[in-house]
Design a protein around this nucleic acid. Structure first.
Length: 283
DNA sequence: TGGGAAAACCGCCAGG
DNA sequence: AACCTGGCGGTTTTCC
């Protein structure tokens, strides 16, 4: 990134030294808890029961004014240090019940990707950590830089990912009330069909008005905007991989014509479909 | 590239 | 009273 003084990043553990990760990777950790004395931002990225030393170091850092961040199950560790008492926080949905039972003083946000509580920020499952991290970059460096970073990450994340990442389901997965996310999944599977607002509403057994209203409430965007965003993402995927013509890609993604695809694609992605494909030609 | 039809959006309101 | 719902119409966006 040009012209910004970026973050200095260090990894710290209660006991410095080699740590073997789940996947067999060895990580050499050089810093101990003393690193928490000077850090501006401290990210807790996972769970293990906090020793008194860890609890103490985090609490001191917080009192000193350091920004505390919990990714995924890191929120559970923060909860155990008492830092989240009386606050709202996010964590992986596997842990929702566990945290609320064990820490009744903490309000668990089940419907969002992350919670910004000022000096303490927490995020849900691992991909939500990206959202929170970008949020922090936005706070520190502004939207333009954050978007720049996001674009970089999205292109590479997107290239390797399948559909999973598109499922926007921060809400609890088994919530029977959640007819909206069921409809969203259905939409993802039928991007190539004619998905009118009425068709979506019919699938959700709601009036168009009510469907639109609930949709906005749970996604923050309107049904049609959401739909075209996902159609474009699918188009990007097809352009990257396949050998379909632009016209075929347009049809496979529910845009009636190449013209309609271009009209939507170009402003969103800031390059035309053809250019986009060219930029991936080497991969 | 442009204009007009169609669809989507959204504030508002009445009714449950 | 504090919701949620569905319809109306004016405005905006999308489509061809």
């Amino acid at each position: 990134v040009v012209g910004v003084h970026w973050y200095r990043f260090e990894v710290a553990a209660a006991q410095p030294g080699p740590v073997r990760l789940d996947m067999g990777l060895d990580l050499m950790i050089r810093r101990g808890l003393t690193a928490l004395r000077s850090a501006d931002t401290i990210i807790v990225a996972g769970w293990s029961a906090p020793t008194p030393q860890i609890t103490d170091a985090l609490n001191r850092a917080h009192r000193r004014g350091a920004r505390i961040v919990g990714f995924c199950s890191g929120t559970l560790l923060l909860a155990a240090t008492g830092l989240l008492e009386g606050r709202r926080a996010a964590t992986h949905w596997h842990l929702h019940e566990h945290v609320s039972e064990r820490f009744p003083g903490i309000e668990i946000a089940t419907d969002v990707l992350y919670v910004d509580d000022g000096d303490i920020l927490t995020s849900a499952g691992s991909s939500a950590a990206l959202d929170l991290a970008l949020h922090i970059v936005r706070l520190d460096h502004g939207a333009a830089i954050a978007n720049h970073v996001a674009r970089n990450m999205v292109t590479s994340a997107h290239r390797h990912g399948g559909q999973q990442q598109f499922v926007v389901a921060p809400a609890a997965p088994c919530d029977p009330e959640d007819t909206i996310s069921a409809t969203m999944e259905w939409m993802i599977c039928h991007l190539d069909d004619d998905l009118s607002l009425m068709a979506m509403a019919r699938h959700a057994h709601l009036s168009t008005r009510q469907f639109a209203r609930r949709f906005i409430a749970s996604t923050g965007t309107t049904p049609h905007r959401w739909l075209t965003r996902h159609r474009i993402m699918r188009a990007q995927e097809l352009l990257e991989r396949g050998s379909l013509s632009i016209e075929e890609v347009a049809h496979a993604t529910g845009f009636g014509s190449a013209a309609a695809l271009r009209a939507n694609f170009t402003p969103q992605v800031t390059t035309s479909p053809a250019d986009y494909r060219r930029s991936f030609a080497g991969h």
